[in-house]
Amino acid sequence: MIVFVRFNSSHGFPVEVDSDTSIFQLKEVVAKRQGVPADQLRVIFAGKELRNDWTVQNCDLDQQSIVHIVQRPWRKGQEMNATGGDDPRNAAGGCEREPQSLTRVDLSSSVLPGDSVGLAVILHTDSRKDSPPAGSPAGRSIYNSFYVYCKGPCQRVQPGKLRVQCSTCRQATLTLTQGPSCWDDVLIPNRMSGECQSPHCPGTSAEFFFKCGAHPTSDKETSVALHLIATNSRNITCITCTDVRSPVLVFQCNSRHVICLDCFHLYCVTRLNDRQFVHDPQLGYSLPCVAGCPNSLIKELHHFRILGEEQYNRYQQYGAEECVLQMGGVLCPRPGCGAGLLPEPDQRKVTCEGGNGLGCGFAFCRECKEAYHEGECSAVFEASGTTTQAYRVDERAAEQARWEAASKETIKKTTKPCPRCHVPVEKNGGCMHMKCPQPQCRLEWCWNCGCEWNRVCMGDHWFDV
C-alpha cells in the first residue's frame, strides 16, 4: 500500500509500505531520502505521535493516508518512550493509558441525555464484534464512529474520518494533550489543546475536521460531520418502519427517538411537499423529531443533505422563500418566477423588478396576487391545505425507538455506581478489583462488596467470576 509523507509540512511524497511495516522502518526510509538522522524524526498522525514499535496496521493507516513527519531533536526523557523501550505506560498493571487514536474515538455516547454525564468515556458498548469485510486488514473493525456528507465523488452519507490540525499553522502536526470525549470537544473551536510539532510553531489549540472515509482524499478535501447519525450498535428499532437498520439518525429530543435514513428521507420529502418545515429565527429551515417532541429541531442543517441534490435544492429554495415571508415580504405569483420581494408595508401595487435578471417585471396586487387592478379585489380565496398535519407515529413504536432507553438498560445490566462519587462504572470481565475512572475520584473498590478495596476482598473473592 501507499502512504503519503509530508516532511516538515512540505509537499508530500509517496512511500510504499506493508501492513506489518513498523513506524521506525518508515522513519528509516524517510531519513534516507531526506539525509537526516532517523532518531530525530517524529511521525504524527490523527493528533498522535506514533511509536517506533507500532506497525502501519496498528495505527489504522489506510491506503493513501497522509502522515506528517517532522525533524525535531529529542528532548530529555522522550527518546526512550518513542523507541518502544522502557515506557512506564506499558508496564503490566499500570494505570496510565495511551491517548486514544482519533481513528478509534467514539462519540456516540454523547447523544445520551444530559443526566448521563461521564458515560462518553466510561461506558463502552460490546456491539462492535462484526466481522471485518472481505479485503480489510485482519482485526480491523467495521464499526463506524462518525458519518459525514461527502460532496465529492460519493454525493451521499458516508463513514467519516476525524482529523485534527494546529489552529495556528493549519498543519496536521499537532499532538493532542488528551483525546475528545464528546461532540462539544470536536465542534467547539479551541476547546481542546495540544502541542504543535512543526518547527518554530508555538500553536497549542486544536482544530478538528472530518474527511470522507470511503475514498482517498487530499489535504484540502473536508466534509461536514453529521453528528446525529450513528451506527445502530444498540439495535434500536426505527420509529417509523420498526426495522432494525444501521446507520440511524438520533433526534435530540428527551427520548432520543431513532429513525433509519430511508424513513428520514421520506419524512423530509413529505414535509417538504406540504411546505411544513419549521422556520426558526436562529436555526433556519428545519424539522423536529418525527414524533413531534418539543425542543427537538435539527440544529445542523447539513443533515438535510440526505435528501439528495434535487430535493436539497428545493429545500434551500423553500427556506429562502419562507425567510422572505417571515420578513413581511411577498413572492411573485407569476408561474416560473417566484422571486422574493420586500415592498413597503402599505404598498398595494407590487412590481417584480426586472433588474439584474432576477425579476420578471410582472405587476400584481398584494392582496389577491392577481395582475394589478384598481378598486376592490374580486375574490380572495383562503389558501387550502395549509394546516399542519401531524406525522403519524405509532405510540408503541415510539416507545421502542428510544436510544436513551437502550442506554439505561445497558447501564443497569453492566454497571454499578462507584461507592464514593456514584458514577456508573462498567465491568466487562476481569477481577473484582475496580478503579473509578473519574479523575477527581480514582477510588479503588470491590465490585462484589461495593466497598473500598481491602485485604478481605483480596483474599476471599479477588478473582471470582
Rank of each mutant, 00 (worst) to 15 (best):
A339S: 12
H124K: 14
Q438G: 04
L162A: 04
W54D: 12
M80R: 09
E309K: 08
I142H: 14
I229N: 00
G284P: 01
Y143S: 10
E321N: 09
P294L: 05
D20P: 02
D243C: 13
P216D: 14
G194L: 05
G328P: 03
M458V: 04
I23Q: 01
Q317L: 08
E28A: 07
T270Y: 04
P199M: 07
P343Q: 07
N448E: 03
N81W: 14
G213P: 04
C332Y: 02
N428A: 15
S223I: 07
V456T: 15
L325R: 05
A206F: 03
K408T: 11
L107Q: 14
F362G: 05
E49R: 00
A379W: 09
G354V: 07
K27G: 01
F4A: 04
P153M: 09
V248I: 09
S378K: 14
G114C: 12
M434K: 07
L283Y: 13
S193N: 10
E395C: 09
G213W: 05
Q63R: 08
L123E: 15
M192D: 00
S145Y: 04
F277D: 02
F362E: 05
G12I: 04
D53T: 06
L301I: 11
N90T: 12
I306Q: 03
C436N: 01
L119Y: 13
Q155C: 09
T231G: 09
T388G: 12
K349T: 06
G139P: 12
E395I: 10
R89K: 13
C431V: 05
A383W: 09
F7E: 03
D62F: 08
E28R: 06
C446S: 01
E79Y: 09
K408I: 11
P424T: 13
S223G: 07
D86R: 10
P437C: 06
A371M: 13
H302I: 08
R271H: 14
T125G: 14
C95I: 13
S136E: 14
E28D: 09
Q389P: 15
F208N: 01
Q71I: 04
F364W: 05
S286I: 00
Q165P: 01
I229V: 15
K27H: 02
C446Q: 01
N52R: 01
R334C: 04
Y285A: 03
N356H: 09
Q347G: 09
A214Q: 09
S10N: 13
R442S: 11
D62P: 14
A371D: 13
C451M: 15
S116N: 14
C238N: 00
A225H: 03
Q171P: 01
M432R: 03
V148E: 01
F362K: 05
W74H: 12
V324L: 07
H303P: 01
T386R: 14
R42V: 13
D184T: 06
R256K: 14
D18N: 12
M458S: 15
R314E: 02
G292L: 06
E96H: 10
V393R: 05
A397V: 12
S22D: 04
Q63D: 15
G213Q: 07
D87G: 10
Q282V: 10
S218A: 14
C323M: 14
V380L: 09
G213C: 07
K349I: 11
Y143F: 15
S246H: 05
R392I: 11
